[in-house]
Design a protein around this nucleic acid. Structure first.
Lengths: 114, 114
DNA sequence: ATAATATATTCGAAGTATCGAATATTCCAA
DNA sequence: TTGGAATATTCGATACTTCGAATATATTAT
């Protein structure tokens, strides 16, 4: 497999490699939502959510449509949702090791949670 | 879904978010290989491959077994291979947009920036 | 013991990602 | 045609990632 293809895949994974962006995709799994609705449901800074949406847009994981004042987002291809579903299964199967990992993450020193 | 779970998933995606690590997983898809064999097939610096293996080990995507002088690596759970297979489908389905993305990456102007 | 081989770790430089604050753009209503 | 709401972009500080070079550790052969 050519390296350019691997870079492409790596890029998609990079786009998914942030809790907020995973949350966004999961929120969009059942249909489109406006940026404002996403911001409300996530309970995060407007600018921050918008930046994460920009990442997902750039990597083409989501599409958006303007409706007057608002912008509605949707997952571009359901395969991405399948990938997340697989990850859920992976988590369940590997619960034990996963919990250890989570502990490590949680105990990561006073890292104000980025 | 709790945020800790999303952080866990994000962490796995982060581990997959590098072309070399994707190449490693793909090389291991058909069975275990020694670190040396991986290094040879990848044609990269020993230290670098070893560092990438360390990432995959830490995130528990691979397991390893020592045999005398050598260390053999294997993918821990075939779900991960399925995830990569899904990504291959995604790439094929979205070939057009993907190619544009690849172009952008390649043509990223003599990027002294960022 | 000593050397040779296989693999892992540490270090520091350079690049990349993330955040909130501030600012800009776009669209609609009055 | 001004004002307000929704969304996007820019900026700078801080944290994280990646690389090769150098070094360390472990295992076998001499």
């Amino acid at each position: 497999m050519p390296d350019s293809l691997r870079r492409f895949k790596a890029d998609i994974f990079q786009a998914l490699a942030h809790p907020t962006r995973i949350a966004i995709i999961e929120l969009l799994a059942n249909g489109e939502l406006s940026a404002g609705e996403l911001i409300a449901k996530l309970g995060m800074e407007q600018a921050n959510v918008s930046q994460h949406l920009a990442v997902l847009r750039t990597k083409q994981l989501v599409v958006n449509r303007k409706a007057g004042n608002q912008v509605f987002y949707a997952v571009r291809d359901p395969i991405i949702i399948k990938v997340l579903a697989l990850m859920r299964r992976y988590f369940q199967k590997n619960l034990k090791g996963a919990l250890e990992l989570l502990n490590e993450i949680d105990n990561t020193p006073a890292d104000s949670g980025r």
